[in-house]
Computed example of a mutant assay.
Amino acid sequence: MVHEADIAAVAAVALTRDGHDGQEYWITGPEALTPPDKVRVLAEVLGREVRYAELSRDEIVARWRREGYSDEDVAFLLTMRTDPPEAGYTVLPTVEKVTGRPARTFAQWVRENAAAFGG
C-alpha cells in the first residue's frame, strides 16, 4: 500500500531537485499488509467492526470470469493472490531516502479518508 501523497512527494523531489537524472525509484509504503491486516487497521482506525470474508478459489475465478477477465488474466491474478513475487511484499526505504521523511502508513490514509467509509 502506497499513499498517493508519497508518490507525489517522490515525483516532486525527483523532478525539481538535482541528482535524480536517470534514477528509477520503486516506491512502497512502510509496511507489507495482508488483506486481514488491512481490515484490522480499518476497524481500529474507524472504531467499528469490519469483517473479512475471503472468497474461495472457485468463487473468485467465477467472479473474474463474469467481469470479463481472460484466461491469461485469471491465471495471473491467481498467481498474484497465492504466490506473489518478492517485490509484492518487500518494503523499500525509497520515500524516506528521496524525501527525507518516512512513508505514510495505511492507518494514516484511512484516517484521512474516513469519510469515504462513512466515518
Rank of each mutant, 00 (worst) to 15 (best):
G118F: 10
R66V: 03
V91P: 09
V95D: 07
D21R: 11
A62F: 04
S70A: 08
R104P: 06
E54Q: 15
V50A: 12
G119D: 06
A5E: 14
G22R: 06
V2C: 10
T99F: 13
G119N: 08
A103P: 10
R111G: 03
A5F: 05
T99S: 12
P30R: 06
P36G: 12
E96Y: 01
E67A: 03
V74K: 05
A12E: 10
M1C: 08
A53V: 15
Q108C: 02
L92W: 11
H20K: 02
T94I: 13
A103F: 05
T105V: 01
R66S: 12
W26R: 14
A5K: 14
G47N: 09
G68Q: 00
P102Y: 10
A32C: 05
R57S: 08
Y89W: 15
G47P: 08
E54C: 05
P36T: 13
P84V: 10
V45P: 01
A62P: 04
D6M: 04
D18L: 10
T82A: 15
T105S: 14
P93N: 09
I27A: 06
Y89Q: 11
I27M: 08
Q23C: 08
D21K: 05
V2G: 02
F106Q: 07
E96A: 07
D6F: 03
A32R: 12
T16I: 06
T79M: 13
P85Y: 04
A9Y: 04
R81S: 15
D71G: 12
A43Y: 03
P84W: 11
W64T: 00
A12Q: 10
E24D: 01
A9N: 04
E112L: 04
E54S: 11
G22P: 03
P36I: 11
A5I: 02
